[in-house]
Design a protein around this nucleic acid. Sequence first.
DNA 1: GTGGTGACGTATA
DNA 2: GTATACGCCACCA
Length: 108
Amino acid sequence: MEKNRQDFYKAVYDIVRQIPEGRVSTYGDIAKMLNKEGAARQIGYALSRARVAHPPVPAHRVVNGKGVLSAKQAFASPTLMQELLENEGVRVKDDKVLNFHKICWRAT
DNA sequence: GTGGTGACGTATA
DNA sequence: GTATACGCCACCA
C-alpha cells in the first residue's frame, strides 16, 4: 500500500507529542522509530511543517544528535526554543542541551 | 521532469 | 574525541 507522505509526517508529529516533559529526543531516534534511519533530515523537515500541524507539536523538545538546538532558527525567535526548554526544566547553554546524554528520551 | 536544498546521522581516518 | 566525506528522503523553484 502506498504510504502517503502525510502519513510519514503524521507519524513524526505523533512521536514528538509522546516526548515527556523535561526530556528531549533526537531526529535519528525518531527516524529509527519509523524505520527511516537514513531519513533523519526528513524528521526536521517534517517538524518545520509541524508549525501548522494539528495539534501543535513540541518541536522544541527535538534536537540533533549532538544536543544542539539546530532548530532554533526555525522558531519565531532563535531564543524561543531555549526559553521553552528551560521552561520545561531542560538546561541549555550556548544553544546546547546540558546533560543531554541523560535526558535524551528514547522509545522502548 | 530535473536540479538543488535541508531543524541530520553514520562511517571512516 | 575531533575532522572529513558520503548517504538518506521529501519539498521547493
